[in-house]
């Protein structure tokens, strides 16, 4: 900017109005107010500057300053994030938030330093569940033979295979037409995305499997953070932390609205045999927990249950 103000850039692949976009916007407004306009934020939502995998590297090299990404996209480069995605690591949203606030979020966020990033906040975004065009899923056997879209993450690919589904990696953008044309039978995501992606218009069955609570993570480039004056740096870190409850309020309200909207549309909800799913997913969890640092973190997560 010409007036000497520092302008931080932030990217998100979600659209305007999505809780993570709004939370980061709130950070920007707060920074601008507290610094009398010295530090500002420019947001690029809706994936205007590219996909999540590229945004992470852009932040690492300092092309952008901040980015909000889904924890699943970080698994392979930042193994600690896997602990947050593991199937049935969390029992409920209450457990998840309790654990995150009790130090789990901080441990994961500290792990980004190894690759020129600083973790600013963990935004929890509800439970991921299965939805499909065929039938209600109550036990893992109901998944057998179903072609489900998964994001490009080894953990999720392995999980789907283990549960008996046929994982088809594809981009979120292709998923709707994939279901409409029966190339795939369904996908898995949280309620808010199920609604905002309009996938509910194609998939009639929502099964409350809650198999993962993979959250979203807000990152900043180490270079950008270091370039700020110490006082501004502290202010940014504190504001990002304070944005978590802001995001949660927005999330809870909009998730409820989304649930109501898809219910009104006529989506069939069903509960699943949670124990059967837990048992079926256990071998995968065991395999990942052979890594000592994941084992330690997982134990701490379970202590909050």
């Amino acid at each position: 900017a010409d007036d000497g103000a520092t302008v931080l850039t932030a990217t998100d692949v979600h659209v305007a109005g999505y809780p993570t976009v709004e939370a980061v916007k709130w950070i920007g407004e707060t920074l601008e107010r507290e610094t009398s306009g010295r530090v500002r934020l420019r947001q690029y939502h809706s994936g205007q500057l590219g996909r999540e995998a590229e945004a992470i590297d852009m932040a690492r090299f300092g092309a952008i300053d901040m980015t909000r990404v889904y924890a699943g996209a970080l698994n392979n480069a930042f193994p600690l994030t896997t602990a947050l995605c593991l199937p049935y690591a969390f029992d409920s949203v209450a457990h998840l938030r309790h654990a995150l606030d009790g130090g789990i979020a901080q441990t994961v966020l500290d792990g980004f330093g190894s690759r020129d990033l600083v973790g600013l906040a963990v935004y929890d975004s509800g439970a991921r569940c299965f939805y499909n065009t065929r039938h209600a899923i109550r036990t893992p056997a109901d998944l057998h033979g179903l072609k489900l879209r998964v994001a490009s993450s080894d953990m999720f690919i392995d999980l789907m295979r283990l549960l008996g589904a046929n994982p088809t990696p594809m981009s979120l953008g292709d998923t709707f037409s994939g279901m409409e044309t029966h190339m795939i039978d369904g996908a898995e995501n949280n309620m808010r995305s199920f609604h905002s992606s309009r996938h509910f218009e194609a998939a009639r069955f929502w099964s409350q499997s809650e198999h993962s609570y993979a959250p979203d993570i807000l990152l900043i480039s180490r270079r950008s953070l270091d370039a700020l004056a110490p006082a501004d740096r502290d202010l940014l870190i504190d504001t990002a932390r304070a944005s978590v409850p802001v995001m949660r309020r927005l999330w809870d309200a909009s998730e409820e609205a989304a649930r109501q909207a898809v219910r009104d549309y006529g989506i069939a909800f069903n509960e699943v045999d949670m124990d059967a799913f837990r048992t079926a997913a256990a071998p995968l969890r065991e395999r990942y927990l052979r890594q000592p640092e994941l084992q330690t973190l997982y134990r701490r997560i379970r202590d909050f249950a």
Binding site: R51, F61, A63, M170
Partner: peptide, 19 residues
């Protein structure tokens, strides 16, 4: 004053779309 590595990263990303 942006890193020129973005050029190469985006060249790669530009052909990273499945369609």
């Amino acid at each position: 004053d942006l890193p020129s590595i973005v050029l190469v990263q985006q060249i790669s990303a530009g052909t990273g779309s499945a369609s």
